[in-house]
């Protein structure tokens, strides 16, 4: 299990209330939540957001196991932040305070990541792309490729699990040929990984090429003139969710 059980935020359809929300509402709520979790200072405010997170996960009908597993790739960042903080703060202040502050900073980052991970878990890639497209489209007036960027993110999300499987298979194949991927210093390790990286890049380019051809064969020529089977429809629930998020943000600042 080199890479087999990693789920990098692959869509998990459960048909929950959160799944059915408009992707624009979800994106906007996430933006609100992140911008308020990030500057939160007190333990109370963070505890409050943990509670909100727990409720959100409950409402999504996705198990905690899946949510945590999806966040595993970013755990490294959380741990790194923690260790770095411990050293930095202990240096200037006391160790107890160092551990306490670092624990707080790392948990804040973790909560943030878990909120972020919920988005792709509850939103199908193309729907997410549609939402991003809609939110980014005002930038299109300034020449920003809004539709293309959104489509790219959607396609990347669709193909990440597949590329993880490919990576796993290549690692196994090269280990079978006696590759030593886990020995030596950092330079030797990077060099030892070339037999994995080179075939992976070849596969990625080949896939990208074939996907582009297949999309063209189905008449894709960019966002202009494209309609939707299920056009994004803004319901009163979406407005409600945004309103609730605004209230939550205000409450958390008051804590």
């Amino acid at each position: 299990m080199y890479f087999t059980n990693v789920n990098l935020g692959q869509y998990v359809p459960t048909g929950s209330f959160i799944h059915r929300l408009d992707p624009r509402a979800k994106l906007f709520s996430l933006l609100l939540i992140i911008s308020s979790v990030f500057p939160s200072k007190g333990v109370l405010a963070l505890g409050f957001w943990v509670l909100v997170l727990a409720l959100a996960v409950k409402a999504s009908k996705i198990s905690w196991g899946i949510v945590l597993r999806a966040a595993r790739p970013v755990m490294f960042l959380v741990i790194f932040t923690f260790v770095f903080n411990v050293i930095a703060v202990s240096w200037s202040k006391s160790i107890t305070q160092g551990i306490f502050t670092s624990l707080f900073t790392a948990s804040r980052l973790l909560v943030l990541m878990l909120f972020a991970v919920l988005l792709p878990l509850t939103t199908a890639p193309l729907e997410l792309a549609d939402g991003l497209d809609a939110l980014l489209s005002p930038l299109g007036r300034f020449g920003f490729p809004a539709h293309e960027s959104a489509m790219m993110i959607g396609m990347a999300l669709r193909f990440i699990p597949l590329l993880m499987q490919e990576t796993d298979k290549i690692i196994r194949a090269q280990l079978s040929r006696g590759a030593r991927l886990d020995q030596g210093n950092i330079f030797q390790r990077v060099k030892a990984f070339l037999p994995v990286l080179i075939p992976l890049f070849i596969i990625i380019f080949r896939r990208a090429d074939e996907i582009a051809v297949a999309m063209e064969a189905r008449g894709y020529e960019g966002g202009a003139g494209r309609t939707r089977r299920k056009p994004l429809v803004w319901h009163w629930t979406d407005t409600l969710v945004i309103a609730v998020c605004v209230v939550l943000v205000v409450v958390s600042f008051a804590l």
Partner: peptide, 28 residues
């Protein structure tokens, strides 16, 4: 084409089947 994975763009069956008519700009 040969590899089904390289032709499917969406994560859900109906969304993928809809890709071509969506590109044609048809009503929902």
């Amino acid at each position: 084409f040969q590899d089904p994975e390289n032709q499917i763009v969406a994560a859900m069956v109906e969304d993928d089947a809809a890709f071509a008519p969506e590109n044609q700009g048809l009503p929902s």
